[in-house]
Nucleic acid binder design. Structure first.
Lengths: 150, 150
DNA sequence: TACGGGTAATTGAATCTTCAATAGAACTAC
DNA sequence: GTAGTTCTATTGAAGATTCAATTACCCGTA
């Protein structure tokens, strides 16, 4: 075990600010969706990814990748979405282990109804708060972090 | 209802990158703590805040503020931490509604043992991934976002 | 063909989080 | 002092997430 390189005061401040700001942002977004559309943000993300996929269909593993969630969590979530009638499962003909998740018309309608409020919340939390330069930097930093952990 | 100002392509990309990068970062940090120290990151944060407070003691509401979590969530979490013997509750003498959360010696020891691994994970996910300029920008952006939502 | 290792997705149990409701205490104004 | 309001914190139930285990399948190789 090598010696621990502790965070200095600046790094600590940055890490705390990072943690807290994202907790606040994500909570605000999540609360808006739960309140106005009755779904957590995780569900919204799934519906969005499906809505943009060809045939509104994705393999479970692709959907997990796109939304950065674990296979297990996605599987549970899709089960709930299926119960609500917003998504359905279909077998994959070429790989019998595989499953497709398909956005239903009802799911699409729910997503369309939820979108304006959600976009408003995202604008309010991020894009109205930052100037153009900060947005550019946030984008760059996010890409860098995501690349490293993928 | 005014017309929705949708996100343009750049904004969408930034928002997705933001979401995904933070999901990846927080999951990595959380997984490390669960694996190596048997506690979720939320517990670690609570222990840290208490460890830095005078007398290792904070009012529940102050602790909730410091960690940016809801009162309910904190109350449940402190109950679990109490069951583990890492935190104890004390009555507030000046306000009989109030409760203090106090870090126990055992809790302090657990925190001290968990810290090196956690710091390593934070370095790995954030500070080793970004250059000094990016860290400075991340700090500024995080402060801005947090200020707006508080 | 049969073996073995890897892949796709699901399951159940334990844990964590959210929400709404509640209890009890403190403040405010009369 | 007391009625009404707000503040502090907790509770229980419903829902979401994690982890480990499992099922079923694919594919390369002998």
């Amino acid at each position: 075990m090598t010696e621990t390189r502790w965070l200095n005061a600046d790094e600590q401040r940055t890490w705390r600010a990072y943690l807290n700001s994202h907790r606040l942002v994500l909570d605000a977004i999540d609360a808006q969706l739960r309140r106005d559309s009755g779904m957590p943000q995780a569900y919204y993300e799934i519906l969005v990814q499906l809505s943009e996929a060809p045939e509104r269909t994705l393999r479970m593993a692709e959907l997990a990748d796109a939304t950065c969630v674990s296979a297990s969590r996605l599987s549970h979530a899709v089960t709930r979405l299926q119960e609500r009638g917003w998504v359905r499962r279909e077998d994959c003909p070429t790989d019998r282990r595989g499953q497709f998740a398909v956005l239903t018309d009802e799911g699409y309608a729910v997503l369309a109804a939820a979108a304006p409020g959600h976009v408003g919340a995202v604008r309010g939390a991020i894009f109205d708060a930052l100037d153009a330069e900060q947005v550019r930097r946030l984008d760059e930093i996010s890409q860098t972090l995501a690349r490293r952990l993928t």
